[in-house]
Design a protein around this nucleic acid. Structure first.
Length: 274
DNA sequence: CTGCAGGGGTAAA
DNA sequence: TTTACCCCTGCA
């Protein structure tokens, strides 16, 4: 275990704000999860981030980037705050959130599962997907850990094979996505560099992927910070809090603004009563 | 206990 | 623009 000094960062906000679904808070307040095929545990105490399960070299080469600890979010937050007073308030409220650099396929698959669904159930489906089709990586404390299954693995299955994960009508979407990704018809890494509209169009070739899931994949899986996913909460937030602004008004860090507004709105539902 | 609306969307009508 | 969709949960 070792410590990393992280400012403008809130671990719990970051891992529990709905952008990732495999992190579990432990009794001691730490977060345990699997990403990039590895088991890891993070714990925050003030600006100290304690890392267990990886050495410093692995942290520097992988996890620091995963948590997006490199960019100066303090500066980004300040720039965004000048745009609108309510955004300033949201940015202060949710300012510890960082946009994770998740694996693209995992993000795509997770946000297909997220549609017309709630977070506890999304987490359950993702967990059963990993349990049934991922690879067991470690055995510890009588717990088992599984990787997120690859697109290649899922591509070889049928929707019926997925019945144990209880994804419902989304099962065939998952298969379709896996087949297109595994075959190379959809190349997530090349989508990373495309114009937003073209990138969306590529992702929407997948059955069950519309604008919202495409945008979530771009922001959370391909780190396109200019992408501004609009779900029902964000549509409400735009109408009530930012009636004079459009998503593109938030600029190249619109995705971060979106995450601040989203988290702020979820934590203040009373703003949207009536 | 049973019934039903609705959930961080999408595709088809 | 409206509706069904598989499944689960919360609440009459």
């Amino acid at each position: 275990m070792f410590v990393f000094n992280a400012t403008d960062f809130d671990l719990a906000q970051t891992l529990d704000c709905g952008q990732a679904f495999r992190w579990k808070e432990q009794a001691d307040g730490s977060f345990e999860g699997v990403a990039f095929g590895k088991l890891i545990n993070f714990k925050q105490d003030g600006s100290s981030l304690y890392i267990s399960g990886a050495d410093e070299m692995e942290f520097n080469s992988l996890w620091k980037h995963y948590l997006d600890l490199e960019p100066d979010y303090g500066k980004i937050r300040e720039d965004l705050s000048h745009l609108h007073p309510v955004l300033k308030e949201a940015a202060e409220f949710a300012g510890g959130i960082r946009i994770l650099n998740q694996e693209p396929w995992e993000a795509l698959c997770s946000f297909i599962i997220s549609q017309n669904n709630n977070i506890p159930r999304i987490k359950g489906i993702v967990e059963r997907l990993c349990l049934n089709f991922g690879e067991k990586i470690e055995f510890e404390k009588e717990k088992e850990f599984y990787t997120f299954p690859t697109a290649e693995k899922i591509a070889a299955l049928t929707a019926e094979d997925l019945s144990p994960i209880r994804a419902g009508f989304r099962a065939r979407y998952i298969i379709d996505a896996a087949q297109r990704v595994a075959s190379g018809e959809i190349d997530l890494e090349s989508i990373r560099k495309m114009e937003i509209s073209q990138a969306r169009h590529e992702l929407m070739k997948i059955t069950g992927v519309g604008i919202k899931v495409a945008d979530c994949t771009l922001l959370y899986g391909l780190h396109r910070l200019d992408c501004f996913p609009l779900d029902v909460w964000m549509k409400r937030a735009m109408t009530v809090l930012f009636p004079d602004l459009t998503p593109q008004d938030f600029g190249k860090y619109g995705g971060i603004a979106q995450q601040y507004i989203f988290h702020y709105s979820r934590m203040h539902p009373e703003l949207f009563n009536t």
